[in-house]
Design a protein around this nucleic acid. Structure first.
Length: 277
DNA sequence: CGACTTTGACCAGCGC
DNA sequence: GCGCTGGTCAAAGTCG
């Protein structure tokens, strides 16, 4: 399509397609962790075994993405730090913005929409759109929509600039649950799916049988498509996204809570795979 | 028939 | 102010 050829950097792609480029903070510093991934998914209280755990049995993709650097900071992005580890149970819910005035806006919208049947949403001035905290990660998968234990309804699809693959928008089908997710393919490697979650589930996973997850077999059928999983960070300082963070994080800070004993990548990545390209 | 997907249109935010 | 792009809505279509 357009300038794809010129912008083969992942960060560039992220910059254009994710409003979260500032969020990819792969520095090795230990920072406060407002929300863990599974907390964002709303499953931490319901499942001891996370999606990350699923991948322990799956070969992790250790691909080196192009051009690690280059970042511009998008200050509009929610600041959300990396979940320490998927297993982390220490949680401080401090997602900076998000959450608040949603109900009011929703009420207004609903009323107005009822009044003006075909008319679309009332305009909201004064305020920027408030967004839920987000968490993005990459998976290597043949299917776009990865099963994560929740039920999702697709509500939109958009062609994305700099990508020949459309972005799909999903919403949790559970009543009162406002969690959304976006799914798109990495334009330079269609086998990689980038999933971005927004918001927190307010309910247990409706379709994930807990008993099937804990032990060795843990019902892999819904997850069979997942070959690899990259957590993408939501950092605070807009430092560069480094696609090789998978490797670097492993080595850069032994004391880092990101990786400690049960750090994500140590859980996920066999050491020999890290050495492979 | 209900749940879900598709798809075109509309709106908001942002950069120029 | 204008145009571009991302995000969302909702009617119509599809599927089980």
């Amino acid at each position: 399509m357009e300038d794809l050829s010129g912008s083969s950097s992942f960060s560039g792609y992220i910059s254009s397609s994710f409003p979260l480029q500032s969020v990819f903070d792969f520095s090795c510093e230990e920072e406060t962790m407002p929300l863990g991934f599974m907390e964002l998914l709303g499953v931490q209280d319901h499942l001891n075994t996370s999606l990350f755990d699923m991948t322990q049995q799956a070969p992790l993709l250790t691909r080196s993405l192009h051009n690690p650097c280059s970042t511009k900071i998008d200050s509009s992005v929610d600041v959300l730090n990396q979940p320490a580890t998927p297993n982390s149970s220490s949680i401080s819910s401090a997602s900076s913005e998000a959450v608040n005035d949603e109900p009011d806006k929703v009420d207004d919208q609903e009323e107005d929409q009822k009044k003006t049947s075909k008319q679309l949403k009332p305009k909201k001035t004064n305020q920027k759109r408030q967004r839920e905290p987000r968490f993005a990660f990459m998976t290597k998968s043949e299917v776009d929509h990865l099963e994560d234990g929740y039920r999702w309804r697709k509500y939109g699809q958009k062609a994305v600039k700099n990508s020949s693959f459309p972005r799909n928008y999903y919403r949790c089908t559970t009543n009162l649950c406002k969690v959304k997710k976006r799914v798109e393919r990495y334009f330079s490697d269609p086998s990689i799916v980038i999933t971005t979650y927004e918001g927190q589930h307010t309910h247990p996973s409706p379709i994930m049988p807990r008993s099937s997850l804990g032990a060795g077999t843990f019902g892999m059928e819904p997850f069979a498509a997942i070959n690899a999983l990259y957590p993408l960070n939501f950092g605070q300082n807009g430092s560069s996204f480094n696609p090789s963070f998978i490797h670097e994080r492993r080595f850069c800070s032994p004391a880092s809570s990101l990786l400690k004993d049960h750090g994500l990548l140590q859980d996920l990545v066999p050491s020999h795979m890290l050495k492979e390209e």
